[in-house]
C-alpha cells in the first residue's frame, strides 16, 4: 500500500500545493460572510477548498453549503474542542489534515481558505498552517479596536474592517480607524467594506487573486486562469 496520504504530505516549504489563506477575527465580524463572498467571486476562476473551524462544529460549514457558493464536498469542518485559537496556532494538526484531505480529494487546488472559529484579538494563524492571513474586524466593536492592536490587527497580511454601513449608527469614525490601523500595521494593507452591500467582496478578492498568482509563480503550482469579476 504505497499510495497513502501520509506519504504524500506536502513539504513544509509549500512547493506543489495551494496557497493557504487564514481568515480570523472576533465572533460576528463577518468571517463566514467573507468566505462566502470570496467563493462567489473567485469560485468561477479558481479551484477552491474551504476549512471551517466554527466552535459549534458544522454551523459555518452548513451556512456556506446552504449559500450554494461552493460544492459542499469542498467544505470541510474541524472541531476545535472549545479552543479555536489552539486549533489555528498551537496545535494545527487537525486543520492541516483537513487542508491536505481537500487537496488530496480535489487537488490540485489554487487556494484553500481556513476560517478560524470566532475568537479574540490575540488569535493569529500559525505560519505552519496559513501562508497569508486576513483579520476581520467590524466597526460595531468601536473605533478604538485598531488602536488597541493585538497580534491579529498588527500582523495580519490584510486587515479588513467590515460593516462600514453601520459606522454612522454606532458612532464609529472610519478616519480614526484607518489612521490607527496604519500606525500599528507598518504599511501593511487595510481595506474597508460592507459585505452586506458588496456581496462579492471585490476589493478583497482582488488582493487574494494577486496572492494566488504570486504563490503559483513561486511554488510552480499550475497558475489559475482568472480575473476577478
Amino acid at each position: 500500500m504505497g499510495g497513502n496520504h501520509a506519504d504524500h504530505h506536502h513539504a513544509p516549504d509549500g512547493h506543489g500545493r495551494a496557497l493557504r489563506l487564514g481568515i480570523g477575527g472576533p465572533v460576528g465580524s463577518g468571517k463566514t460572510a467573507l468566505v462566502a463572498a470570496l467563493c462567489r467571486t473567485l469560485g468561477p476562476s479558481m479551484r477552491l477548498g474551504v476549512v471551517t473551524n466554527d466552535i459549534y462544529t458544522t454551523e459555518d460549514a452548513d451556512f456556506l453549503r446552504r449559500a450554494g457558493v461552493l460544492d459542499p464536498e469542498r467544505i470541510s469542518a474541524v472541531q476545535t474542542g472549545c479552543c479555536p485559537h489552539t486549533a489555528i496556532r498551537d496545535d494545527i494538526a487537525a486543520n492541516i489534515d483537513a487542508v491536505e484531505g481537500l487537496e488530496e480529494r480535489f487537488g490540485p487546488l489554487d487556494l484553500v481558505i481556513v476560517e478560524s472559529g470566532g475568537d479574540n484579538l490575540t488569535a493569529t494563524f500559525s505560519r505552519g498552517l496559513a501562508d497569508k492571513q486576513i483579520f476581520v474586524l467590524d466597526v460595531s466593536g468601536g473605533d478604538k479596536v485598531p488602536r488597541k492592536g493585538g497580534p491579529g490587527v498588527t500582523t495580519a497580511d490584510l486587515l479588513l474592517i467590515n460593516k462600514t454601513d453601520l459606522a454612522p449608527l454606532v458612532g464609529a469614525d472610519l478616519t480614526v480607524m484607518s489612521r490607527d490601523a496604519a500606525a500599528v500595521r507598518d504599511g501593511k494593507p487595510v481595506l474597508f467594506t460592507s459585505l452586506r452591500e458588496d456581496r462579492g467582496a471585490h476589493s478583497v478578492a482582488e488582493w487574494v487573486t494577486g496572492l494566488v498568482h504570486d504563490w503559483a509563480h513561486h511554488h510552480r503550482a499550475p497558475a489559475p486562469t482568472t480575473s476577478t469579476a
Binding site: M1, G2, N4, H5, A6, D7, A93, A94, I96, D97
Partner: peptide, 24 residues
C-alpha cells in the same frame, strides 16, 4: 494519522515510514 504525520517530522525514523506505508 495526525500523530504519525507530526512524529515523522519531529522524530524521523524508518519504522514510522514503514508504519505509514503499511497502514495509512
Amino acid at each position: 494519522r495526525l500523530l504519525l504525520r507530526v512524529a515523522r517530522r519531529i522524530w524521523p525514523a524508518p519504522a514510522l515510514d514503514e508504519l505509514a506505508a503499511a497502514v495509512p
